[in-house]
């Protein structure tokens, strides 16, 4: 079970297991975690725990809730997150052995069934009557949370049949590709018989940053445009005369490649025809295309 460590000025005060679905934090005695300090609002924040995932939500507190130094309204708690409430700190520790869900877990396509959405929306409406916009927003958030936790639950279900049935590696969390609404019922029997390791988790964040790579350029050596240079900034650049001879230069993480596109004759590099397959370019290679010579070089 995940837990929180309450501390002040580096002194550990309490260890609180997150056993309930809702764990409230605030100054009033009615809270699950009572912090008797004026900087803490009566009802300050709540942690919603679904399966192995915990979500922190600020309940409109006066002084706000800070996680790892950033103010948050809603936050998906990750192992070792530090929640700050005034002078108090709450450290979130995920359940040992359970891999916390990461962005990669949610990458596989899943179905969010309208029926599931409706059920959650109704719950939210019942919980917050007349809440209008806020209720709808909560319903959405709850639906996402539910789907997300179904996803991590299904992580143990929707496994990769080709992966060896070995001990689960630390990366064995994802491979959740079960339709969210359909997961729980069908999950148990499938999980029992599968027992394989899941596909490895990609470590990158959702938006893959393009790796920095040296910029290439070509300089025309012959013909009427001799002397002109062209930086190869785009992922692909076409060169040549349409109808006569065209080649494309592609910019890839491994470097630049030239590929024949059209024309009876293929372009040549350093005097040799490149054929029809992509040809890797090296610094100072001389390309001949449609009767024009040009030099490829790597800019520093």
């Amino acid at each position: 079970m995940a837990k929180l460590i309450l501390s002040m000025d580096g002194l550990v005060l309490k260890e609180i297991p997150l056993g309930k679905e809702r764990t409230t934090i605030g100054r009033k005695p009615s809270n699950d975690i009572q912090i008797d300090n004026l900087a803490v609002s009566g009802e300050h924040a709540v942690i919603v725990t679904i399966m192995n995932d915990s979500f922190l939500e600020d309940l409109g507190s006066t002084n706000g809730t800070i996680v790892n130094g950033n103010p948050v309204k809603k936050h998906f708690l990750q192992n070792n997150d530090v929640i700050e409430l005034g002078k108090y700190k709450l450290k979130f520790l995920a359940e040992p052995g359970v891999q916390p869900a990461t962005a990669a877990d949610f990458e596989k396509t899943m179905v969010l069934r309208p029926s599931a959405m409706k059920a959650v929306a109704e719950q939210a409406r019942a919980a917050a009557p007349g809440g209008g916009q806020q209720a709808a927003e909560q319903a959405r958030a709850a639906a996402v949370q539910q789907a997300a936790s179904a996803a991590s639950a299904a992580g143990t279900v929707a496994k990769d049949s080709k992966a060896p049935a070995a001990a689960p590696s630390p990366a064995a969390a994802p491979a959740a590709k079960a339709p969210a609404g359909a997961a729980p019922a069908s999950a148990a029997p499938a999980a029992a018989s599968s027992g394989g390791a899941a596909a490895p988790a990609p470590a990158q964040p959702a938006a893959a940053p393009k790796p920095a790579q040296p910029l290439g350029a070509i300089q025309i050596l012959s013909g009427s445009n001799a002397g002109k240079a062209l930086e190869l900034v785009k992922p692909l650049t076409t060169l040549g005369k349409p109808g006569v001879q065209v080649a494309v230069l592609t910019r890839r993480p491994q470097g630049y490649f030239i590929t024949h596109v059209e024309g009876a004759k293929q372009p040549s590099v350093n005097g040799e025809s490149i054929g029809t397959a992509p040809h890797a370019l090296k610094d100072h290679d001389v390309i001949e295309l449609a009767g024009v010579k040009m030099e490829f070089f790597v800019k520093g």
């Binding site: 949610f106 969010l112 069934r113 996402v144 789907a147 969210a180 959702a206």
Partner: peptide, 9 residues
């Protein structure tokens, strides 16, 4: 996040 949740399939 949650790019992967489709509502029809």
């Amino acid at each position: 996040a949650h790019k992967n949740l489709v509502t029809r399939a």
